[in-house]
Amino acid sequence: MWRYFGRKLFVYALTFFVAVTINWMIPRFMPGDPVRSMLARASVGNAEALEAMRAYYSSLFGLDLPVWQQYLNFWGSLLRGDLGTSVWLFPTPVSEVILGAVPYTLGLLVPAILLSWIAGNKFGAFAARGRWLDNTVLPVGYLLTATPYMWLGILLAWSLGIVAGIFPTAGAYGFALQPSLSWAFVSSLVLHWFLPFLSLFLVAFGGWAIGMRNMIIYELEADYSSYLEALGAPRRLVRRYAFRNALLPQLTGLALQLGTIVAGALLTEIVFSYPGLGNLILEALNNRDFFLLQGAFLFIVLGVLIANFVIDVVYVLVDPRVRVQMQGGAA
């Protein structure tokens, strides 16, 4: 058991190390002077303040130090939780800016991922082998997965938001409201949340429905299914077994798709000006706030790694084969 998780954790640790290294390398080895291009866009009128910022960032990048020392310093401040100071929201620390946005992103992502996975799997299994449903679900599902996240967001914002006027299309809650536990605020929060959630949900849903449909057909043709059918087991039982077994590869699929769905969430947030990490990244790009950009990157990578590990744990819990093999290895 420990061997299995140890191996997984090792890969994740290595991935994090690589991510941090990429993060460190990109500004230093890409052509151009990051500090200058950063300050060129910073909306600082005061010349004195500009000079102070310039000095601050130059020392932060530590461009005068030997490369290896720059690298170690980078890790040092990272491990102290210091991601630098935002240019866009100077002088707020980057970590603070990011922590303010993370709840919104998670609030979109977690329900969208879980619900689309559950609903997509149920629906895909339901559609499989029903001739009429299968022939509709398959193309619709493929079109949904082929839809760019932001485009579906744009269509929903335009149709249900602007034309129909049912849902607001920007922000996380009404401009006039202050965050509180009042009914007005919570209902506004939910209304603003719904469209971005829906567009994320729909694209992901299409993928899971197709995946399950293909997996369950494979399982229904497996030997254990044929055997049950030969012994006259009702379709219900055969399907239940097949569904359960098809869920396992779908769980692996979830781990593989995390990165894509996260990217989708970022794009969707931008469409809806939803104040999560996606919007933060856009602001960071527009303001050439590289510290914020890099901080957001590290947060996302960390989040994806943690989610991957959670899926690994769940997988062991639901697949007896892995469990048995691990026990066999230990004994």
Binding site: N23, S37, G259, T260, V262, A263, L266, F290, L293, F297
Partner: peptide, 25 residues
Amino acid sequence: NMITNIVLVLPAMVVLIIAAAYLEA
């Protein structure tokens, strides 16, 4: 395999955003 797994877990789009942000050409 190790390299594959690392690149697999890294969210490609986010890496690309970072890279493209610094890239002028």
